[in-house]
């Protein structure tokens, strides 16, 4: 539609939104948010005192990164949904990619700097990616972020080495494996504790690497899955089938 109409509509919608949002007084909460108890790790009511980094032990939820405690702990089902979304877009891309590219993308011959640099940087990227998803419960990061970093490493390989080709089947199996194991762990949780995605491993001390029960394991699986998924999408974009 013409720019004038578009601008007009947007201005109208904008005015409407701003009016209502300022009237709604977003700064004033009418109710205590549910995250209050999540921050205190006291949703089940079993933790009267504050959570202390490096000291509190055996809590209902063991992650020092509070966002992670929500993503993979309190609201883990949404994360399963998220995994399925990424899986879905990888499938979708795979399903129509053969209609778009029927030959491989011609890559420019990479420069010497790129080739050598990639060789040095790629292992670092790998390590960093693994660090990010294995420390998701301790510092900002997690499976999705770590997996994306791994995928960037794969992209670097594609750019720097013209003959590089991702092993399609291996990565698809990794994808499937990550997802299936996630669900299986959830079902084991159901058998062990009565509800899907129940955290049945010990929670340890908040702040240590081996803590937070199931969370590091789940994030590991997610990291592998996301990395292989995005790598697969990259592969499709480069024209492999």
């Amino acid at each position: 539609m013409s720019r004038l109409w578009a601008a007009g509509i947007v201005v109208l919608i904008g005015l409407f939104l701003f009016l209502f949002l300022s009237d709604a007084q977003l700064g004033e909460r009418q109710q205590v948010p549910v995250s209050e108890k999540m921050v205190q790790k006291n949703v089940l009511g079993t933790n009267p005192g504050p959570v202390i980094f490096g000291q509190s032990e055996g809590l209902e939820e063991g992650s020092a990164n509070l966002v992670t405690s929500i993503v993979v702990g309190y609201r883990a089902l949404d994360t399963l949904g998220e995994i399925m979304v990424l899986f879905l877009s990888a499938l979708g891309v795979g399903a129509i990619a053969h209609l778009v590219w029927n030959q491989k993308l011609q890559k420019e011959a990479p420069s010497f700097i790129l080739k050598t640099g990639a060789g040095i940087v790629f292992p670092m990227i790998l390590v960093f990616g693994v660090y990010v998803f294995s420390h998701g419960h301790l510092s900002p990061g997690g499976g999705f972020q770590g997996g994306s970093i791994l995928a960037i490493g794969i992209l670097l390989l594609y750019i720097a080495f013209p003959t590089f080709e991702l092993n399609r089947v291996l990565f698809q199996r990794l994808e499937g494996f990550g997802g299936v194991t996630f669900v299986v762990l959830g079902v084991i949780g159901a058998l062990a504790g009565g509800a899907f995605l129940f955290n049945f491993l010990p929670n340890g001390v908040v702040g240590q690497l081996f803590s937070a029960g199931l969370i590091p394991i789940l994030y590991l699986l997610i990291g592998l899955k996301v990395g292989s998924e995005l790598g697969g999408i990259l592969r499709n974009l480069y024209g492999g089938e």
């Binding site: 399963l80 399925m84 899986f87 499938l91 089947v169 698809q172 199996r173 994808e175 499937g176 494996f177 997802g179 299936v180 669900v183 079902v187 899907f196």
Partner: peptide, 20 residues
């Protein structure tokens, strides 16, 4: 109720895990 969702999803994941 949950199985009505999980079963298809596990099926989809397995299609890729056991591809070929």
């Amino acid at each position: 109720a949950l199985w009505m969702t999980l079963l298809p999803w596990i099926g989809a994941l397995c299609l890729l895990l056991f591809k070929g």
